[in-house]
Each structure stands twice: as structure tokens, then as C-alpha cells.
């Protein structure tokens, strides 16, 4: 565990309550180029995301929203600018995997469950990097799957689950190590409307109950309006940043 990031793993919620306006993420002049500058995915982006906020990043394909998510999750490094998590520079983290393991939960559009593992085992995968005893891992996975309504699907393989159920397993997995931030990339993109509503309800409920920071990337305005704040991006720039009045953490 990185003391640099967190002095007490279970203190995330308390800290948010003590200082509700502190920033989870802060970016200044953030740039990301690909192909030696031929593609500019992010162009001098300034951004602040307070702890416990539900924020939606919208925009057309190629506007840089997924790239932003990658940088927030330390999956890639910015070309220029600064990006900090709780005041600590993300590109300079000595162990980005520890940061991802302890602070970040990812939810992907294509679920990305491992096909040869059951729902219960998939949820345990992130916990294998911790020192949690095997029995405790299993209990926690069971508890998380129960919390997303899949207590009857514990031993089902992904191929035997519906799209909505798969995404619920993925959400349970993202919560495995009790992260303070959820990064969701088009989490309803592969779901029908009923399942999409259910997943959004679930994410909103989790965000509010756990007072997590939720950054959700979507190109769907209806999905975005579930967030408290919407940042609209075009060509690597944030062209609008507005509050919706929804999903505000009390």
C-alpha cells in the first residue's frame, strides 16, 4: 500500500465528509498526443473533480474522453501538463498498479470479465494483489455480488450471464478493493435500455452510498444527465462544464 496516497484505506468516506470540497483529481494544461503528435487527443485541458462527485464526460467519438479516463486511471501518461490525485502527481506515482489497485475501480463498456472464471472468481481477481486471506476474499466477493443482486449467479460463468448481469459482476469487481474512485467507460454502451437504466441506478446508488467519486464517460446525453456535473468535450477541449442538480453527494 502506498502511504503517499492514503494513510488509512477505510478513511476515504470520513475524509470526504470532513472536507467535502477537496479535489480528487486536478488537471492543469493536460495534453496527450499519439503518433508523435499527429493525433492530439487532449489539448491543454484544465479540470477539477471534487471528492465524491458524480461527473459525466460527454462528447463525440475521438473527442478525448476515454483518453482522459486512461490518464485518471494511470493507464497512460500525459504528454504535457499536470495531473494529480489528492495532490499527488499521477504520472510520478512510484507504483501505478498499487494506485489502481487501491484507489480506482474500472467499469468497461465490454465488461471484460475473464471467461474461464465464475462471477464469484471474477470479483476476486483484483483482490489477488492484496494480502487478504482466501476465505475473506471469497466472503467479500459474495457480499459484493449480493449487493448487486447476483447472489443466485455466483457460480455462473460470464457466458451464462445476460449483458446486464455481466455488467453488474463487473461493477462488483470494480468495488473489490474498496476504491475511492470509479471510472466507468460507456458502462451502458452494450446494454439494452432496461438494463442500461438498471446499471445507471446501481452506479448512482453505489456512488451515493459510498460517497465515491464517479467519472462516467458516455456519448449518451440521457446517461450523462444522471450525473451531478457534465463536462462536454470536443477535439480534446472541454467546451462546457455544467451542474445538473442531480446525483449530488449529501
Amino acid at each position: 500500500m502506498q502511504p503517499l496516497l492514503r494513510s488509512n484505506q477505510s478513511a476515504t468516506t470520513d475524509r470526504v465528509l470532513e472536507n467535502p470540497v477537496s479535489n480528487a483529481f486536478e488537471a492543469v494544461g493536460l495534453k496527450k498526443d499519439f503518433d508523435d503528435g499527429a493525433v492530439q487527443a487532449l489539448r491543454s485541458l484544465d479540470l477539477q473533480i471534487p471528492e465524491g462527485e458524480f461527473i459525466a464526460i460527454t462528447g463525440p467519438s475521438g473527442c478525448g474522453k476515454t483518453t482522459l479516463l486512461q490518464l485518471l486511471g494511470a493507464l497512460d501518461r500525459p504528454t504535457a501538463g499536470t495531473l494529480a490525485f489528492r495532490g499527488v502527481s499521477i504520472p510520478d506515482l512510484p507504483d501505478p498498479s498499487a494506485y489502481r489497485s487501491q484507489e480506482i475501480g474500472f467499469v468497461f463498456q465490454s465488461f471484460h470479465l475473464l471467461p474461464t472464471f465464475t462471477a464469484l472468481e471474477n470479483v476476486q481477481i483484483p483482490m489477488l494483489e492484496t494480502r487478504m486471506p482466501s476465505a475473506k476474499r471469497r466472503d467479500r466477493a459474495r457480499e459484493l455480488l449480493k449487493s448487486v443482486g447476483l447472489e443466485r449467479r455466483l457460480n455462473h460463468f460470464p457466458s451464462k450471464l445476460s449483458g446486464g448481469e455481466r455488467q453488474r459482476v463487473a461493477i462488483a469487481r470494480s468495488l473489490a478493493n474498496n476504491p475511492s474512485v470509479l471510472l466507468a467507460d460507456e458502462p451502458t454502451g452494450n446494454l439494452d435500455s432496461d438494463n442500461a437504466v438498471m446499471i445507471l441506478d446501481l452506479l448512482t446508488k453505489i456512488q451515493q452510498e459510498k460517497r465515491m467519486t464517479l467519472v462516467l464517460v458516455t456519448h449518451d446525453d440521457r446517461v450523462a444527465h444522471r450525473a451531478a456535473r457534465i463536462i462536454h468535450m470536443i477535439d480534446g477541449h472541454a467546451v462546457s462544464d455544467r451542474q445538473t442538480g442531480n446525483g449530488v453527494c449529501q
Binding site: G73, L75, D95, S97, A98, R100, S101, Q102, I104, F106, F108, H112, L114, I125, P126, L128, E129, R173, N177
Partner: peptide, 16 residues
């Protein structure tokens, strides 16, 4: 490779 990427995203170390 996609699976390895997911494991890395979930916090697995490269060494692992």
C-alpha cells in the same frame, strides 16, 4: 492481450 490489459487495469503488477 486484452485480458492482460484488464488485469493491469484492475491493479495487477507487471511482475505478476
Amino acid at each position: 492481450t486484452p485480458e492482460i490489459c484488464v488485469l493491469l487495469a484492475l491493479g495487477w503488477k507487471r511482475r505478476r
